[in-house]
Design a protein around this nucleic acid. Sequence first.
DNA 1: GTCTATAGCTTGATAGAC
DNA 2: GTCTATCAAGCTATAGAC
Lengths: 223, 223
Amino acid sequence: MPKSELKAKETVKRSTRELLLDVAEELFTDHGFDGTSVRDITEQAGTRLASINYHFGTKKSLFIAVIMRRAIVLCEERLVMLRDIDIDGIEASDALYQLIDAFVLPLLKHSTKGDPGWKNYCRLIAQTSTYRQAYEDNTVREVFDPPAYEFIKCLKKIMPKASDQQVQYAFQFMLGTTLYVFTENLRLDGMTEGKYRSGDMNNIYPSLLKYICGGILNLSITT
Amino acid sequence: MPKSELKAKETVKRSTRELLLDVAEELFTDHGFDGTSVRDITEQAGTRLASINYHFGTKKSLFIAVIMRRAIVLCEERLVMLRDIDIDGIEASDALYQLIDAFVLPLLKHSTKGDPGWKNYCRLIAQTSTYRQAYEDNTVREVFDPPAYEFIKCLKKIMPKASDQQVQYAFQFMLGTTLYVFTENLRLDGMTEGKYRSGDMNNIYPSLLKYICGGILNLSITT
DNA sequence: GTCTATAGCTTGATAGAC
DNA sequence: GTCTATCAAGCTATAGAC
């Protein structure tokens, strides 16, 4: 077999490890961790039952691997955008808007780029965030918390008069609104009989940003 | 055995059915539907394995029963508060504030009144909302949707200039922010090392309302 | 790195006595 | 309405050949 053919085959065929991650990502998203068996995963992936234990050890480790794979990418993109904000050079409300954009836009970009893997991933971390179990894992915290601290630090600079508590709450509210939207839970679809869709991210996005922005601004006003 | 003694015993001992609902509510909240076995439930309830199938038929039916039991109460309380708003007699921003209060306060009241059952229930419906499966059940939709339509109708009266889409989005954002907060997912606790707590609802509540109010107001402003 | 085979256990649900 | 006993199927994980 000539070299070129070998290379072509490599490009086409994903490694078993990556394949398992993709399939697990999809099934965990649609049926949850406990609602997905390793058999479901290996059958859909066309591999044997033992492949998961060989590549990941346990089912739990596979789940963590799924979460971690794209987390590093996502967090890095958020930080790059956050650092690009010229806090001192612009108005506070503009800076706030850009901060929220730095937090949410990376999610939007991946969710709408056509890669079903990323779409599933966004829904997965959004769902997972509502369960206490997931956040109890230290590996996951070590990836998601440091960027979060950067956002909070930046929020404090933008709203110097706001109390520590208000800033902490503001971050959690931003997080909550964002993650709920990215679950794409079909509630909007059901209630409007398909007139509007929870999966229509590009259309929802501008409204989402205005909502979060207005919410945080109102939070820092003492009345 | 005299009548009075019988009555006393009835008051103390919950029916097996109610007991199973309470235990299931707690375990479904902490471990999810698929993470909870009927054995887990019956063992903690001190009943036999067959009791669940006798009283509810299937595990799935038990889950629906758990969701429905308090849903009717919650929805009715929301509607009572909503109807009490004097839309035409007050300013739009005040009316909006009262509308949000009508949506969230019933949750807060039950969540903080000391009944662990209600506390679990609030967390459960918040978690469940991020899964597509749950909303697919018609029984659940028939309870939660009609009150939601009432809120949307009222939102439109308060914000007559806002488009239908903006109002629909506004409702979803309110829903998302609220439900995320009521998951009490411990993220705030972890990030602030216990300085602030996601379970401290009474303290979070005023900020939550200001945030949602500011968000929706900003949404209806065209810039 | 992939395969078969299987251990050891848990699952939801039911049949039938009381 | 509650009990025991049990079924049939599913589960995660591993051992060992190739």
